[in-house]
Design a protein around this nucleic acid. Structure first.
Length: 233
DNA sequence: CCCTGATTCGC
DNA sequence: GCGAATCAGG
């Protein structure tokens, strides 16, 4: 299988959505988990909770005598000495500390901030944080803003049917990319609601995607599972 | 062992 | 560019 545009798009979506490489590979079909990971990296997406990340030692010469038993080879001591730069002092990991969205803000053609907010009820929202609460500027502190929507989230049901569904091709920086259903299925689509500034999802799904870190004792048992969770076939 | 993602490197 | 092999942490 080759990496078509659609397959790449699906890969990105699922990767960003938190799906594991295995799930993505299974979904795409015809590719291995490694292929997905390899592709993801080549695409530039990387990181994401990986078990083997915290540690960063120099592990260079490793895999030399594996395949190709006929040519290069081994060379037993071929790669031991100075052969690998092996320097990955990765700067700071993603600086996710910023209080406001580090929104990629790559609006092509659109101004930056000075955009009048279309919503009159909401003063100056800078962004939406975990749980759906709205962040404002320091001088605009106002309690009257709903901290967390008591509303119950529905699994999938934008409206009537999948008539006005948002397909992969309909995605943009302005619509919610939250997946509904499973890729590959006939009715698979995306939320399509207007996104929160700086986030790939709408307010509702931001609440699902970004959960506030609660004290150990008060964690919520059922974590949100994009794509409906692990598939069972 | 199972899982995960990361990396390397022959193709 | 692709992905199997391999590594390494949980």
């Amino acid at each position: 299988m080759s990496w078509t545009d659609e397959r790449i798009a699906t890969l990105k979506k699922m990767w960003e959505g938190g799906s594991t490489a295995s799930q993505i590979a299974e979904e795409l079909g015809g590719v291995s988990r490694n292929a997905v990971i390899g592709k993801a990296h080549r695409l530039g997406l990387k990181s994401r909770p990986s078990p083997v990340k915290a540690n960063e030692k120099k592990k260079a010469a490793k895999k030399a005598a594996s395949k190709t038993s006929a040519n290069t080879k081994k060379a037993s001591a071929a790669k031991a000495p100075a052969a690998k730069p092996a320097s990955r002092p990765a700067p700071s990991p993603a600086a996710s500390t910023s209080t406001k969205a580090d929104a990629p803000a790559k609006n092509d053609g659109s101004p930056s901030q000075p955009v009048p907010n279309p919503t009159p009820e909401l003063p100056k929202i800078v962004s939406v944080g975990p749980g759906g609460f709205l962040r404002q500027g320091p001088g605009d502190q106002q309690p009257p803003i709903p901290p967390a929507p008591p509303r119950r989230l529905v699994p999938a049901k934008p409206s009537p049917e999948i008539a006005d569904k948002t397909s992969l091709l309909d995605l943009s920086d302005k619509v919610c990319r939250w997946p509904m259903g499973h890729p590959g299925e006939p009715d698979f689509h995306f939320c399509g609601e207007a996104v929160n500034p700086g986030f790939p999802y709408c307010v509702e799904h931001c609440g699902r995607a970004y959960q506030a870190q609660l004290p150990r004792g008060a964690r919520r048992p059922p974590p949100p599972l994009p794509f409906g969770g692990p598939r069972v076939r």
